[in-house]
């Protein structure tokens, strides 16, 4: 079971590779969505994954979480190849994610949403549930403790009994994070968590992402369009364009990388409006 101890000590930022993509390619029909992408997410770091629209960022997430199988190449988590593991098995291994467009279980309460996440490691079967076996009762108790604790961490404890679909937009985003964290992951993948946020909310989110790493000891992989946020919070940044990695390194270096600037200027030519949204590079 992955460590979930709440340590106040900032975790070292130069740990070994927790997740590695090794020359990963993925092809849909004639389209190469990822083309020989390699990078590591190191234990305890916050890695920002950026790139213009359609660069393959979400595809990356999907390969890591078992939604797609890479056409070639390999994804390793904690040294172990993911292989053909099922999606739920990968979650149990310690990778959790949120979604670009919120995908909560709308007709379940906030608490139940988080409980589903906490159930990822539970083993209660039909017989256990029917006879209320000790294991069932222990898991229910633990699950609820975990869920309430995580919700408290995200400031959602008062909304526990509200239907997920009735929460505000910002709360829904946080509930997604809570649900993912309840699966007790080692690596938390956030897919555009700041989409639709105003600057104040973005600042809070930056703070939250740091606390997730510093207080909870999770490694964070962040896809985000908002450059200010990514550059402000990430230890390192990897840049994708047309399914290829064009840069990787500290935010300062990436920011000044000519290839990256070209990539973003390229999108500007295609779609000027979007560049504005994404903020300054």
């Amino acid at each position: 079971m992955p460590s979930t101890s709440v340590s106040e000590q900032p975790v070292t930022r130069n740990g070994a590779a927790l997740l590695s993509l090794d020359d990963v390619s993925i092809q849909f029909g004639g389209l190469k969505a990822l083309d020989g992408v390699s990078f590591d997410v190191r234990e305890g770091e916050i890695l920002g994954l950026i790139g213009p629209n359609g660069a393959g960022k979400t595809t990356c997430f999907n390969v890591m979480t078992g939604v797609y199988q890479p056409t070639s190449g390999e994804v390793r988590f904690a040294g172990e190849p993911l292989g053909r593991r099922k999606r739920f098995a990968i979650t149990r291994l310690g990778i959790a994610r949120t979604f670009q467009n919120i995908r909560l279980f709308g007709n379940m309460t906030a608490l139940e949403n988080v409980l589903v996440g906490a159930d990822a490691h539970h083993r209660t079967n039909v017989i256990d549930a029917l006879v209320r076996s000790p294991r069932h009762r222990r898991e229910e108790r633990e699950g609820e403790e975990t869920a309430r604790e995580v919700m408290k961490f995200l400031g959602l404890e008062r909304r526990a009994d509200e239907l997920a679909r009735n929460l505000s937009y910002g709360e829904q985003r946080r509930l997604e994070i809570a649900r993912a964290m309840a699966t007790k992951p080692r690596l938390l993948c956030l897919d555009e968590p700041a989409a639709g946020f105003n600057p104040a909310e973005k600042a809070q989110l930056m703070d939250l992402i740091r606390r997730i790493r510093d207080v909870r000891g999770l490694t964070v992989l962040l896809i985000e369009h908002d450059m200010g946020l990514v550059m402000g919070v990430s230890d390192r940044v990897a840049v994708l364009e047309f399914g290829r990695k064009i840069a990787e390194g500290a935010p300062v270096d990436v920011r000044n990388d000519p290839a990256v600037i070209a990539a973003y200027l390229g999108t500007e030519a295609d779609d000027a409006g979007e560049f504005d949204q994404e903020g300054d590079l």
């Binding site: 739920f88 279980f105 589903v116 990822a120 649900r179």
Partner: peptide, 12 residues
């Protein structure tokens, strides 16, 4: 509610 999301949250 959402089969894919459930699967990715560890529900077989």
């Amino acid at each position: 509610e959402d089969e894919d999301a459930a699967e990715l949250m560890g529900v077989p």
